[in-house]
Design a protein around this nucleic acid. Sequence first.
DNA 1: GTATTTTACTTGTCATGACAATATAATATG
DNA 2: CATATTATATTGTCATGACAAGTAAAATAC
Lengths: 244, 244
Amino acid sequence: MPTAPNRSFTPLYYQIEQDLLRQIDKGELKPGDQLPSEAQISRQYGVSRITARRALENLVQQGIVYSRQGIGSFVAYARIREMSGFRSFSEDITAKGYRPSSRVVELSLEEPEADVARRLQLPEGGKIYRLHRIRQMDDQPVADEVAYLPAHLYPGLDQYDFSKASLYEVFRTRYGINPTWADAEIEATFAAPDLAQRLGLQPGDAVLVALRQTYSATFEVIELVRSVYCGSRFTFFTGRQFIG
Amino acid sequence: MPTAPNRSFTPLYYQIEQDLLRQIDKGELKPGDQLPSEAQISRQYGVSRITARRALENLVQQGIVYSRQGIGSFVAYARIREMSGFRSFSEDITAKGYRPSSRVVELSLEEPEADVARRLQLPEGGKIYRLHRIRQMDDQPVADEVAYLPAHLYPGLDQYDFSKASLYEVFRTRYGINPTWADAEIEATFAAPDLAQRLGLQPGDAVLVALRQTYSATFEVIELVRSVYCGSRFTFFTGRQFIG
DNA sequence: GTATTTTACTTGTCATGACAATATAATATG
DNA sequence: CATATTATATTGTCATGACAAGTAAAATAC
């Protein structure tokens, strides 16, 4: 459900949606408050009811607002927390107010293991870039991360220095690929000696292992990432998920 | 984004949506296949284009289908995996093909800690039911779980035997409360001796700790659950999340 | 004062219609 | 044969309109 339409102009429904979002973010509309009705929005913005409705519906789908037939729409009490562990590591850490940085252990072009090839839906004989980094916040290692990237999507990727560059930014600007969806499987395990050494831990310490797949808007698997996080220094936040 | 409208009849768009979903589930429409166009669906089902479009849009919002302007709609390659750790434990474990069961350690009515009261958005002086269970699959303990439940939402909850009853079923049938949204924060830590004993682990083993909030359709916090999972026997699957 | 009915407001569903934007295929031209 | 133009298909946005369903408030009846 893209909230930012990918077009050459900004649709009316989107402008109204952003306006309402702004009012919620600024506290002009508080949790529990009723939003203007579809008819009121229609009159206020000079649009049809279907356009007003579309703006409200989008906020409902994002879990920001809820509506009840015959009564109205209301701002959700529980604010959505920023998810972490799903987007760009750089973006995650910056959003938490820390300074992200990375140390590249290795970036190489290679043959994938069978499981990796399967998960990435690689064509026969397809290669991957394997990017191994230690991720840090405020210079303290928090994650050991290996990204498996379909080589056919990213020719020339090895020319970049991912100590400095953000992988997601390179996806977007160089290759025109927008990370749009992600899912993850998460387990706890204990740190092996080599991993413990890289993360400044004791062997046997508890670590969080997340295997995340990232998809483009057309559901191409654009990245498989295995991250091992210090149990004590990183909390994984899922986004709000619909379970009904 | 409710996919099952809560009404006394089934809307046309929903029937079409379910029909398309059935074709995808049965393999009649395979990953990568193009779906019928809006105009074709319109003719085939004898509905307006807006109704056809609504059905397709709902599948897009669920991450099952994607569409491209001027080209068409397509079945996503990557199938959505069943999430786990977000819904009813019973439902999760049953979906994995195991037999869920629970041993109640304790169910009591008590004053909440400040953090619990805040997260549950309890009224001043509000009490909680604290339900402590060991969750099992095929009789093997996999999680130590404490649920904090706002007492005002569930009067008389302590009359139920949650060794046998599903909490979510009781929510729905007895109290008319539908779990609709959830989010979780997840960490890894190590098992303390008492916990290790309850889960059949060694002290110091890695465990996954998930703190999950569950919301009704009107975003009331209906449950706060702290689950500690064996690192080796439980993998937490997030659903597909929109990150764009 | 209470119960019932009516009214008003609001969201939900669906129709018809039009045009814009995007993309590809077919056709025309040099 | 290559390039440009036109046609076609499809999704995206927006309008007007109507009626259903749900809910609460106001008015009326007893």
